[in-house]
């Protein structure tokens, strides 16, 4: 293989890259982080939570009865039949 200037430059770059990857990473000192919300931040969070929709317990007694056609027929109280007194188009 003929060592042209271009090939020499490529070899040089490979050598530099290999040396660089072999070095130790710099040591990082651990830092203690304590996240304490300010009273203002806590109030804001509380407001946001209050705005979230809350699932309320459904009124199951109402629904259970009013979706049961047979039960409704049993419990229905027929209204007093009032004779139709009006005459003519309403």
């Amino acid at each position: 293989m003929k060592l042209t200037p271009l090939v020499l430059v490529a070899i040089l770059l490979l050598v530099v890259a290999a040396l660089a990857s072999a070095q130790e990473p710099p040591a990082v000192e651990p830092v203690s982080v304590t996240a304490v919300a300010t009273p203002e931040e806590e109030a804001t969070v509380a407001q946001l939570v209050a705005m979230l929709p809350t699932v309320q317990p459904l009124d199951t007694s109402c629904i259970n009865c009013h979706q049961d056609a047979e039960l409704l027929q049993q419990l229905a109280e027929e209204p007093e039949v009032v004779e139709k007194l009006s005459e003519g188009s309403g």
Binding site: I63, Q67, A69, L72, Q73, L75, E77
Partner: peptide, 11 residues
């Protein structure tokens, strides 16, 4: 509508 039909819901 019958009386009971008036209050029948589709849960």
């Amino acid at each position: 509508l019958e009386v009971w039909e008036k209050v029948l819901i589709n849960a």
